[in-house]
Design a protein around this nucleic acid. Structure first.
Length: 470
RNA sequence: CGGGGUGUAGCGCAGCUUGGUUAGCGCGCCUGCUUUGGGAGCAGGAGGCCGUGGGUUCGAAUCCCGCCACCCCGACCA
C-alpha cells in the first residue's frame, strides 16, 4: 500500500527535510529559550561517539583535558581588541546575581581564549613549561541572530583546544597537526565526509587570530558547512594576558598560542552530508548502533535465536542492538531503523531459520542478501567496512561532480547555485569577496594548487573555494 | 536586525473570506479483539484557555489593534 513519504523529500524542500529528520529520528527538540536545543538520547549518542573519536585523537596529539569556568569577567574579553569586537554582539551577559547588581558583569563564555590565557600566564614561567597543550569539553553561548538546530544554536557543546608554544613555528606546526591528524582524519575516516581543508581569508578569520584554518564539508544541497577550525593566535593573547616565559638564555619572551575546536554542529553536518529521503545514514565507524538484529515475528525460537545472534555479534566487537518488539509490525520497526540510519539490519524470521539463514540489509548501499547463520559475523563485519568506504566514495563523488573550476566571479556565483566553485584567488583580488557576498556566496578557504596550506594569502597561484554556506 | 510566512490536540493540517449550538480531520496515544516477511485492520476511548493582551459585538478561532514565538530568505556569525 502506498504511504505518504516518511520525510519531506530533499528535492521538495531541503530545510524542511532537515527539520523532519531531526524530529523523526528523535535527535533533538527545540528548547524553551530561543535558539536552544534539547539533544535527545539518540542524538546525544551520536555526539558521544564523535567525542570519543575526537578525544582519543586529541590525546594522541599530546593535549590534556582540563576544565575552566563558564563565567568570565567582562574585563577579560576587553583585553584583546579584535576578540572583543568580534564577540561583543553575541555575548550573553549576567548583570544580576544573588539578587544584587554585580560590580562587574560576567559573560557566559562564547569561547575560552581569555580565561585560559589568564591561567596559561600563571602556569608558564620557563621554556621548559612549553608547549602547554590543553583541551576542554564544554558548552558555550553565542547569541546568534538566526539559530538552526545543531548548525547554529545559542548554546552548543564543543571541544576547544588551547595551546602555548615557545616559537611561532611550533605553534603553527601544532595548529596544522590538529587540523590534519585530528580533524581531517576524523572527518574523512569516521564521518566519511571529504572535507576541503584550507586557509580562511582575512575577512573570514577568527576574531583575534593571525591565521584561521578550516575544514569545509559539502552538504546534500551543495552548500558548504564549516566543520571545524584551527587558529594561530600569534602573540595577540600572549601579550594581552602576559603569557611569558624565560628562554634558555634567560630572556623574557611572549609565547605563541593556538586554539581549535569542533562542535555539535558536526551532527548537523553528518545529517546533511549523508541523509536521504528515508532518513539518516550513519557511517559504520561512527554509528552508536552499527547493527540491529530484528526478530521478524515471535514464533518458535525466533526471539531466542535473535538474542543469541546479538550476543555473538557483540562478542565480535560490534555495537549491536536487538529489536524483539514483535508486538509491533515489522514494517514500522524497519522504517524506524532506516530513519535512524543504522548501517546494517539483520532480519531473522521462521523462514530464515528454517533455511539456516538471516537477511542482511545494508542501509547505505540499500541492498539485501541472505547469509548463512554460520557466516553472519564475518558478513556483518564486511558490510560495515564496505559501507564505510562506499559512503565516503559517494560523498566524494558528489563533491567532485558539484565542484566547478571557473575563472570569473560571474561563473563562480553561477556554480555556487548548486555546489562549490574553485577560482584563482587572483581573480577575486580587490573587491572580489564583496562582489560574491552580493550573492550570498563566500570564500570558504584558500589552498595551493597541490592542496597544501598557503603560508599567506599573498602567495601566487592560490585557489579559492567559494560557495553558499550554512 | 530587514523581507516573507505561520501560530487551532504530541505531530501535520482544515475551519477564518461571509462572527452564531457540544471546534473538526489525518497520524500518533489508550483499551479490546484480530494481526505481524516493508509505516496493520476493526471497534471503542482520552486528549483543546483556537500563541498572547486588549478592543468591537448580544455573541469572536473567525473582525480590528498591540505584543510574543516559530519557520524560510538575507544581514550577522570561530
Amino acid at each position: 500500500m502506498a504511504k505518504a513519504p516518511v520525510l519531506t523529500p530533499q528535492a521538495d524542500d531541503f530545510p524542511r527535510w532537515y527539520q523532519d529528520i531531526i524530529a523523526k529520528a528523535e535527535l533533538a527538540d527545540n528548547g524553551p529559550v530561543r535558539g536552544t536545543m534539547v539533544i535527545r538520547p539518540y542524538g546525544f549518542a551520536i555526539w558521544e561517539r564523535m567525542q570519543a573519536e575526537v578525544d582519543r585523537r586529541i590525546k594522541e596529539a599530546g593535549a590534556q583535558n582540563a576544565y575552566f569556568p563558564l563565567f568570565i569577567p567582562e574585563s577579560y574579553l576587553k583585553k584583546e581588541a579584535q576578540h572583543v569586537e568580534g564577540f561583543s554582539p553575541e555575548l550573553a551577559v549576567v548583570t544580576v546575581a544573588g539578587g544584587k547588581e554585580l560590580e562587574e558583569p560576567v559573560v557566559v563564555r562564547p569561547t575560552s581564549e581569555t580565561v585560559i590565557g589568564e591561567f596559561m600566564a600563571k602556569w608558564t614561567q620557563s621554556y621548559r613549561d612549553l608547549p602547554l597543550l590543553l583541551n576542554q569539553w564544554a558548552n558555550v553561548v553565542r547569541w546568534e541572530l538566526r539559530p538552526r538546530v545543531f548548525l547554529r544554536t545559542s548554546e552548543f557543546l564543543w571541544q576547544e583546544g588551547h595551546t602555548a608554544h615557545a616559537t611561532e613555528d611550533d605553534a603553527r606546526r601544532y595548529a596544522e597537526q590538529i587540523l590534519h591528524d585530528v580533524y581531517r582524519d576524523f572527518m574523512v575516516d569516521v564521518l566519511a565526509i571529504p572535507v576541503v581543508v584550507g586557509r580562511k581569508t582575512a575577512k573570514e578569520r577568527f576574531a583575534g587570530a593571525t591565521n584561521t584554518m578550516t575544514l569545509e564539508g559539502m552538504m546534500g544541497d551543495g552548500k558548504a558547512l564549516q566543520m571545524g577550525t584551527s587558529h594561530e593566535l600569534g602573540q595577540n593573547f600572549a601579550k594581552a594576558f602576559g603569557i611569558t616565559y624565560l628562554d634558555a638564555s634567560g630572556t623574557e619572551q611572549h609565547a605563541w598560542t593556538t586554539s581549535w575546536g569542533v562542535s555539535t554542529r558536526m551532527v548537523g553536518g553528518l545529517i546533511m552530508a549523508h541523509g536521504d529521503d528515508r532518513g539518516l545514514r550513519l557511517p559504520p565507524a561512527l554509528a552508536p548502533v552499527q547493527v540491529v538484529v530484528v526478530a521478524v515475528r515471535d514464533e518458535g525460537d525466533v526471539v531466542e535465536r535473535c538474542r543469541a545472534l546479538t550476543a555473538e555479534l557483540r562478542a565480535a566487537g560490534v555495537r549491536v542492538e536487538l529489536d524483539a518488539r514483535t508486538d509491533g509490525s515489522l514494517g514500522r520497526r524497519v522504517t524506524d531503523w532506516e530513519l535512524k540510519g543504522v548501517p546494517v539490519r539483520v532480519e531473522v524470521g521462521p523462514r530464515d531459520l528454517a533455511a539456516g539463514e538471516a537477511v542482511l540489509v545494508r542501509r547505505i548501499e540499500g541492498t539485501k542478501a541472505s547469509v548463512p547463520l554460520a557466516d553472519l559475523a564475518p558478513a556483518v563485519a564486511a558490510a560495515l567496512t564496505e559501507q564505510q568506504a562506499s559512503l565516503l566514495a559517494e560523498a566524494t563523488a558528489r563533491r567532485d561532480s558539484r565542484t566547478a573550476e571557473v575563472d570569473t566571479i560571474d561563473e563562480a556565483v553561477e556554480a555556487a547555485g548548486s555546489g562549490f566553485a574553485r577560482i584563482p584567488w587572483s581573480a577575486l583580488a580587490a573587491g572580489g569577496e564583496e562582489a560574491l557576498a552580493q550573492h550570498a556566496v563566500t570564500v570558504r578557504c584558500l589552498e595551493r594548487p597541490d592542496g597544501s596550506l598557503p603560508a599567506s594569502e599573498d602567495e601566487a597561484d592560490i585557489v579559492a573555494t567559494v560557495a553558499r554556506s550554512y
